[in-house]
């Protein structure tokens, strides 16, 4: 038969299979990049951006609701001081979240934010948030965790309510470091 051609095809096809295996893993960063560019997925991309605000749009208000969830493994209590607030776009606001460690051990936690509706996520801008860092509570310690944010005045008119949900996960002490390196 045409042995050299067979060999060439074989090599090409094995190469494609290995390449597609790599592509499977490339989908992981590609997925984040894609969501970042398009603003899809409700991920919170305002993290660590702190552009100062100048104008406050007094003509309308947006309701911001605060929701908290606790991962089962974390023996904490975690609640916002208020459940919702009506704000003018551009207005800066500080809200506190109360956390209590109900166990007899020092525990680390990390809050992962999620904003719905997803396409409104980019208009909720946080200037300071406890979710930027890992939180540590000693045994039976109580803490007040602040969040400062404003609503971008460019927010589309059809969004009247934004829901900010925090899920608090148990964190291993070193996991945070590893995560920062990954980013």
């Amino acid at each position: 038969m045409t042995a050299p051609k067979i060999k060439k095809h074989l090599r090409l096809l094995i190469f494609s299979a290995v390449g597609m295996f790599g592509f499977g893993f490339a989908l992981v960063p590609l997925y984040d990049v894609f969501c970042d560019i398009t603003g899809l997925n409700g991920k919170d991309y305002s993290r660590e951006s702190s552009v100062p605000m100048t104008t406050v749009d007094e003509s309308r208000t947006v309701k911001v609701e605060f929701v908290t969830y606790l991962n089962k493994q974390l023996p904490w209590q975690f609640k916002p001081e208020i459940n919702s607030i009506e704000l003018h776009p551009g207005e800066r606001y500080q809200v506190s979240f109360m956390a209590v460690n109900q166990s007899d051990q020092d525990t680390f936690g990390r809050a992962v934010p999620s904003i719905s509706p997803g396409y409104g996520a980019q208009y909720l801008v946080k200037t300071e948030c406890f979710c930027f860092q890992e939180q540590m509570l000693a045994a039976n310690e109580e803490a007040t965790m602040p969040l400062i944010f404003y609503i971008d005045p460019n927010i589309p008119a059809d969004i009247s309510t934004l829901t900010l949900a925090y899920t608090l996960f148990k964190n291993e002490p070193n996991a945070d470091l590893a995560m920062n390196q990954k980013k």
């Binding site: 597609m20 499977g24 899920t167 148990k170 995560m179």
Partner: peptide, 29 residues
């Protein structure tokens, strides 16, 4: 040839998420 390797990648990620502490699919990480 186009998709079976992607499946192999997906199960590999499950394997490392479960046994080796990676966080491909774990929101906490």
């Amino acid at each position: 040839i186009a998709v079976m390797p992607v499946l192999a990648g997906a199960v590999t990620m499950i394997l490392t998420d479960k046994y080796f502490g990676t966080s491909f699919f774990d929101a906490a990480g």
